[in-house]
């Protein structure tokens, strides 16, 4: 039995093997460059990173945050409810490299920008468990002790061809890597106009279904501890967020918690559902403070 000639000719074999692996490569890896990041995918409002944001992104890369956090929201219903509108290709045109990640040990961060105030991020980065008690995130307090290097950032901006002003670079004096990382967090997902589906519509009927229900007060207290206490304090004394005061109408309080106050740094809690938001309202109104 004689073997086919490629089994006896190593150079021919190498050429054939190379050609074989190039077929799928060309179709699925080379060809897409014609579609991806083209004019059709452009999204108005998506802007390059400012100097401080870019430095924050490089800190994110250096610390390997992408090993635990993804940055792409899939068009699946639970995912859009949890994180916000699904990701579009045009959002990522300035991302070198992409940071989509492959594992969510922590939550997705594609829409984290604007969700929490800066103070929340500073405290959470320095001591994650002070805000999320059973979190397994490492503490990054050391970033506050490390300054940024304006001349290095200038070179990075030039290499990437991102626009910047001298004022922006001057403003970097005295900034730390923590400032940079928080600036980057607040940039993520911020450029995309909020889709209609991502703003929850509060129900029209606004009466507290749990009024006078003592068991529900206890459940509300637990929900408060998990979701509210990190900013408003265990005793509602305030902290990152304001002190919680009396004199609210049930319905107004519900709407505020349900939809949040994005411009004031208060996230909306519609993803908890109406029932649990009402339990928090019921707890706050019950004099349980």
């Amino acid at each position: 039995m004689s073997a086919p000639s490629w089994e006896k000719k190593p150079i021919l074999f190498l050429l054939l093997a190379t050609a074989t692996i190039l077929v799928g490569t060309i179709v699925t890896m080379v060809l897409p460059f014609a579609w991806v990041n083209s004019e059709e995918e452009r999204i108005a409002g998506i802007t390059p990173y400012a100097p401080l944001e870019l430095e924050g992104r490089d800190v994110y890369i250096r610390e390997g945050c992408n090993n635990c956090h993804t940055q792409t929201v899939r068009p699946l219903v639970a995912e859009v409810v949890r994180y916000g509108d699904y990701s579009r290709s045009g959002e990522f045109v300035y991302d070198r490299p992409h940071l989509w990640g492959s594992r969510r040990t922590g939550p997705d961060l594609a829409r984290i920008g604007g969700k929490y105030p800066d103070a929340w991020h500073f405290q959470h980065m320095a001591e994650p468990q002070s805000i999320v008690p059973r979190s397994n995130m490492p503490a990054y307090a050391f970033l506050s002790a490390q300054g940024v290097d304006p001349s290095g950032i200038r070179r990075k901006m030039e290499v990437l061809g991102f626009p910047f002003t001298e004022e922006q670079l001057d403003a970097l004096a005295g900034k730390t890597e923590m400032d940079a990382l928080v600036a980057y967090m607040q940039k993520l997902g911020r450029d995309l106009p909020r889709g209609e589906g991502s703003t929850p519509v509060a129900p029209t009927e606004l009466t507290n279904p749990f009024a006078g229900d003592a068991a529900a007060v206890a459940e509300g207290a637990l929900l408060y501890t998990e979701h509210c206490a990190s900013c408003h304090g265990a005793d509602q004394q305030g902290g990152i967020g304001p002190e919680l005061t009396d004199g609210w109408d049930d319905g107004d309080l519900f709407s505020l918690i349900y939809a949040g106050v994005p411009e004031g740094g208060m996230p909306g809690f519609s993803s908890l559902g109406q029932e649990r938001v009402w339990k928090i309202v019921n707890y706050l109104q019950s004099g349980g403070r």
Partner: peptide, 8 residues
């Protein structure tokens, strides 16, 4: 490569 191309 940038963004979606880089991911692919």
């Amino acid at each position: 490569f940038a963004g979606t191309n880089d991911a692919n």
